Simulated scan of single mutants.
Amino acid sequence: MKCKTESREKILTTAALLFQIKGFNATGLNEILTESGSPKGSLYYYFPNGKEELAIEAIQLSSKSIQKKLKTSLDKYPSPIEAIQFAIKNIMEDLKKGNKLKDISISLIALETYLSSEPLREACKEVFQILEGMYAKKLIESGISKKVAQELGILIQLMIEGAITISLTQKNATPLLIVSNHINLLLSPYLNTK
């Protein structure tokens, strides 16, 4: 039983990584099997509905990793400004290590599947909403009203996701650094009025 679970986990972990860094369409099932070291029949045994089912579970697995990293960053500092800047710094360091999206973003799979697969679009939407909610929660804990914190959570998520995309495209972290530098300007007016 443990062997079966390990095989399924290998396939899922490999798929999550490949979908994050190569995208859904550029990742073939044979590549997932080869990279995971799994036998050919195992993919449809564990994921009988095919690649889309595998991708949904891979998105959920990636989401857990991204959430864990973000929570660790946000919990490091009581100040939301310092915490969010720390989270951005960690993203910048991860990108410098290899310019890959592993456990940083699901943007690639979201962008390429939003028109072609409603279940994948929904899975990605859920991830983005969870991350927005994590930023909003940090802001609420700092005394910002729920409505404003929710809007700012969306804005922060938009800025960071956009900066990740542009940083990857330009092959430098300057866009993320700019977002980090401006978090203070964005949040200070709300934090100083409490």
Score class of each variant (00 low, 15 high):
residue 74 L to I: 12
residue 76 K to A: 10
residue 28 G to M: 05
residue 62 S to A: 15
residue 95 L to E: 04
residue 30 N to S: 08
residue 131 L to G: 01
residue 103 D to M: 01
residue 28 G to P: 09
residue 188 S to E: 02
residue 132 E to W: 04
residue 161 E to R: 01
residue 145 S to W: 00
residue 105 S to E: 09
residue 154 I to G: 00
residue 121 R to L: 14
residue 2 K to G: 13
residue 82 E to D: 11
residue 82 E to A: 11
residue 79 S to G: 07
residue 165 T to Q: 09
residue 175 P to W: 00
residue 98 G to S: 03
residue 22 K to I: 14
residue 128 F to K: 06
residue 187 L to K: 00
residue 138 K to L: 04
residue 44 Y to L: 06
residue 29 L to N: 12
residue 41 G to S: 07
residue 180 S to I: 08
residue 5 T to M: 12
residue 168 L to E: 10
residue 6 E to K: 15
residue 111 L to W: 00
residue 55 A to H: 05
residue 29 L to S: 11
residue 122 E to I: 15
residue 47 F to M: 07
residue 34 T to M: 08
residue 112 E to G: 10
residue 172 N to Q: 04
residue 55 A to Q: 08
residue 137 K to N: 06
residue 13 T to I: 09
residue 41 G to N: 08
residue 120 L to R: 07
residue 28 G to F: 00
residue 158 L to I: 05
residue 176 L to Y: 03
residue 94 D to E: 12
residue 88 I to Y: 01
residue 149 A to V: 08
residue 13 T to H: 14
residue 135 Y to R: 05
residue 160 I to F: 00
residue 90 N to Q: 12
residue 40 K to Y: 11
residue 82 E to S: 07
residue 8 R to C: 14
residue 51 K to S: 09
residue 173 A to H: 05
residue 46 Y to A: 03
residue 148 V to Q: 02
residue 64 K to C: 06
residue 102 K to Q: 10
residue 27 T to Q: 08
residue 162 G to F: 02
residue 10 K to I: 11
residue 66 I to T: 12
residue 150 Q to K: 11
residue 191 L to C: 03
residue 44 Y to W: 04
residue 67 Q to C: 15
residue 52 E to L: 05
residue 126 E to W: 12
residue 14 T to N: 11
residue 141 E to D: 14
residue 115 L to I: 05
residue 54 L to E: 06
residue 39 P to Y: 07
residue 174 T to K: 07
residue 143 G to R: 04
residue 148 V to T: 14
residue 98 G to P: 06
residue 7 S to D: 06
residue 40 K to M: 02
residue 103 D to G: 02
residue 32 I to D: 09
residue 171 K to T: 10
residue 134 M to L: 15
residue 26 A to M: 12
residue 154 I to A: 03
residue 59 I to A: 07
residue 85 Q to L: 03
residue 61 L to T: 15
residue 136 A to T: 11
residue 191 L to M: 03
residue 70 L to Q: 11
residue 76 K to M: 01
residue 47 F to V: 11
residue 192 N to R: 03
residue 178 I to R: 02
residue 17 L to V: 15
residue 75 D to C: 04
residue 22 K to C: 13
residue 187 L to Q: 01
residue 148 V to D: 04
residue 93 E to A: 11
residue 84 I to E: 01
residue 118 E to W: 08
residue 135 Y to F: 15
residue 55 A to T: 15
residue 139 L to T: 10
residue 33 L to T: 15
residue 87 A to Q: 08
residue 50 G to E: 04
residue 17 L to M: 11
residue 58 A to C: 08
residue 189 P to I: 00
residue 115 L to E: 09
residue 155 L to A: 10
residue 92 M to Y: 00
residue 95 L to I: 15
residue 135 Y to N: 08
residue 46 Y to Q: 01
residue 136 A to H: 07
residue 116 S to V: 13
residue 20 Q to V: 15
residue 187 L to V: 02
residue 139 L to V: 12
residue 66 I to M: 05
residue 122 E to Q: 13
residue 99 N to M: 08
residue 152 L to P: 06
residue 57 E to L: 15
residue 185 L to T: 03
residue 35 E to Q: 14
residue 134 M to G: 07
residue 22 K to A: 13
residue 126 E to A: 12
residue 49 N to D: 13
residue 96 K to N: 08
residue 119 P to K: 05
residue 175 P to I: 04
residue 55 A to D: 09
residue 15 A to Y: 10
residue 164 I to A: 08
residue 68 K to C: 05
residue 6 E to T: 15
